[in-house]
């Protein structure tokens, strides 16, 4: 099963290497990992999507906890959360095909961010399912280049995975 972990880490150099190294040497499978700063300048937040059964997840959790730079781990899989991923896709589209591509973009509420002579570059945000569907719809035109940010996620409502204790 896929799990989504929200991991707060000290904003120290090398922290990404520590986390990535831990996953590779213990044989844990990362689906995606996104990292960036948070509301506090000393703290970064990683959203890690990891594949594994209960036992693997328990080890992922415990081993992550052993890293001195890891402050807090939240497995939010079972909670209500909002998740988003951003994708940039450069797709073949000569002027005759642009209309179709733009229609698809409309359906997915994607935006055109660049136009080339024979290509269109689109930006789309959404959850996993939407991004996958968007990619599939464009595949027949010939995808020249594709880049995904990896998923970021946040709990819904008043709950949060911040440094302070939860309010509710």
């Amino acid at each position: 099963m896929r799990h989504t972990l929200a991991v707060l880490v000290e904003n120290n150099p090398g922290v990404l290497a520590r986390v990535a190294g831990l996953f590779s040497r213990r044989g844990f499978n990362i689906d995606s990992l996104a990292v960036g700063r948070t509301e506090s300048p000393d703290v970064s937040r990683m959203t890690i999507v990891v594949e594994g059964d209960e036992r693997v997840l328990e080890q992922v959790n415990k081993q992550l906890h052993k890293l001195v730079d890891v402050i807090k781990i939240n497995d939010i899989t079972a909670d209500e959360y909002v998740d988003r991923e951003l994708v940039l896709i450069k797709v073949n589209a000569d002027p005759a095909q642009r209309g179709e591509v733009m229609q698809i973009a409309d359906v997915f509420r994607a935006r055109i961010v660049d136009l080339g002579r024979k290509t269109v570059t689109l930006e789309c945000t959404g959850n996993d399912g939407k991004i996958n569907a968007f990619e599939e719809s464009l595949r027949p035109y010939g995808i020249k280049e594709l880049v995904r940010t990896g998923k970021i996620a946040m709990l819904r409502g008043t709950k949060y995975t911040g440094l302070q204790e939860n309010g509710d």
Partner: peptide, 16 residues
């Protein structure tokens, strides 16, 4: 050496 010893130390530091 901090990179090399990442998997074999409890923690390590490069003092800058």
């Amino acid at each position: 050496i901090t990179g090399i010893t990442l998997p074999i130390t409890k923690h390590n530091y490069l003092v800058k």
